[in-house]
């Protein structure tokens, strides 16, 4: 591809124990083009969430990103950023949506204050400016802006996740990392939210790193998919190819685990 937006090269992450280490991510390399949706699929413990955290440098000891690993966003190595540059980088270049939205929103702050928090620090906006931007973002995710003064617990799970997405997009990031954003939601809400993200992506041009274990959903939503097993990236291809012609045994095994709605038993 022409200049990728995100370039992960030889990423290796260990969890350092008292005697032994656990290799969570093993020499993983992949690129994400501007405006592309890249999916990372795998079961629990495969390392996909570890990669997501590493991109925003959210890890804490005993996690250790081994030397030789590089994460390049628009040419700059994220791993080399000093604390000030890192603060700028977060939210503006990369935004992250975590699995349980319930935990991402501060339960004692009103929604408009949560927007103000982010917009004040990163863009120096005043309250009035933040309110305007918040209204704009909430409308984009189909939440009535007049509910800005509500608290998180007054919204349903699906709506909270939408609010988190709105806050993520408030600073026009180039890359949005989503770690199992809809796993805890029911299937209709999941469809609505992802549909919307797809439309927003086309409008604003950001890339998405989408992490989940639901392969069928990935093929619907993503342009390219990487399959992870025990820290390694075992297969990487266009979504259609992953669906129609899976190469790796594990990919085939994953496909076999999803019963088809209309067929009988999948072989």
């Amino acid at each position: 591809m022409s200049e990728p937006l995100l370039s992960v090269r030889n990423l290796t992450i260990d969890y350092i124990g008292e005697e032994t280490d656990f290799r969570a991510v093993d020499d993983v390399s992949f690129d994400i083009a501007p405006g592309e949706v890249f999916g990372l699929a795998g079961e629990s413990g495969c390392g996909k969430s570890t990669i997501a955290f590493a991109i925003s440098r959210l890890h804490k000891p005993p996690a250790l990103i081994r030397k030789g690993s590089r994460i390049l966003l628009a040419g700059r190595d994220v791993l080399d950023l000093d604390p000030k540059a890192l603060a700028d980088f977060r939210w503006r270049e990369v935004a992250m949506v975590f699995q349980s939205a319930m935990n991402s929103l501060n339960p004692v702050l009103r929604i408009e204050d949560q927007f103000y928090d982010v917009l004040r620090i990163h863009k120096g906006m005043t309250r009035a400016q933040a309110r305007e931007r918040a209204a704009e973002m909430l409308r984009l995710v189909d939440i009535p802006p007049d509910r800005m003064r509500n608290y998180p617990h007054q919204f349903s799970g699906g709506m909270r996740q939408r609010i988190v997405i709105a806050i993520c997009m408030a600073l026009d990031p180039k890359l949005v990392v989503m770690d199992e954003p809809t796993t805890a939601l029911d299937v209709v809400v999941q469809r609505e939210i992802l549909q919307r993200i797809n439309e927003l992506r086309k409008e604003f041009g950001f890339s998405v790193l989408f992490i989940t274990h639901d392969l069928g959903l990935m093929v619907q939503f993503c342009d390219r998919i990487g399959i992870m097993l025990a820290g390694k990236l075992v297969e990487q291809n266009d979504a259609a190819a992953i669906y129609k012609t899976p190469q790796h045994d594990y990919t085939k095994k994953l496909w076999a685990s999803f019963p088809s709605l209309h067929g009988g038993l999948l072989s």
């Binding site: 008292e18 804490k60 000891p61 005993p62 250790l64 990103i65 030397k67």
Partner: peptide, 17 residues
């Protein structure tokens, strides 16, 4: 000191956060 090994590795440049 359950983070001793970790600190050693970071200081020797073997890795970072």
């Amino acid at each position: 000191n359950h983070l001793k090994r970790w600190s050693l590795l970071v200081r020797s440049g073997e890795g970072r956060l």
